[in-house]
Amino acid sequence: MTDEPLLRVSALSKFYGSRVGCENVSFDLWPGEVLAVVGESGSGKTTLLNCLSTRLLPSSGTASYRMRDGQFRELYRMSEAERRFLMRTDWGFVHQNPADGLRMTVSAGANVGERLMAIGDRHYGKIRATAVDWLSRVEIDEDRIDDEPRAFSGGMRQRLQIARNLVTGPRLVFMDEPTGGLDVSVQARLLDLLRGLVTDLGLAAIVVTHDLAVARLLSQRMMVMKDGRVVESGLTDRVLDDPRAPYTQLLVSSILQV
């Protein structure tokens, strides 16, 4: 099983007119692997993530995904219905701003249950039990299940968003700055939680972040991007401890020491 990658990306480019979003990005992602994409803002991280999650169509290049039946399917040749089905079953997308990934006007329980109902679950009691289970896994009290996310703190919203994405047992999760905008103690707990979930569920994840500490904690492998191109990639520890590209050296040496 694991000798074949989950996602194969080859020469992916996205141009906005004459501007480069990301250019000539290639990599393979294996099941259960967490890949961090780091770089300063404007380096094309989010463009890459949006292309991979088919929220954007790339200008050129291919990406194929190994479906549950073991067959590789080329993402950009799938119909929109298939892509959206993939999005809400086998994939997850954790937005930086939880309001983008949650329905803010329906209760936490319904937020978690929506994906189950979308794939045909029609038993209220079971949906609710699953929602309770997932809320406890992301450390949200059961008695908040009928509250709207509007009444939640930033950290809770982010954890709710994670629960909402993981409820269908996806194999691949995209995360865009999952800890952005949270204070450090909340960040630490969230990272701890994410690390636990990723290991327990054997998730593969692509995490976009500008925070090298997040990358170090979560990921096994990382790619450093600058001006839309990948300047260095390798094992996270290797890249952070022994950066080779001048830009990576600059990035690593820019970390504030407390």
């Binding site: 929109e80 219905a81 959206r84 809400r88 329905r103 329906v106 209760s107 329980g109 319904a110 249950g113 929506e114 994906r115 109902m117 979308a118 794939i119 029609r122 209220y124 949906i127 609710r128 299940i145 009928d146």
Partner: peptide, 22 residues
Amino acid sequence: RKMHALEEYGLMHVKLYEDIAR
């Protein structure tokens, strides 16, 4: 319109779920 076209009606049950929860 896209949801109708692709027969994505999970959201309709979210409304009924909210009713029962409340």
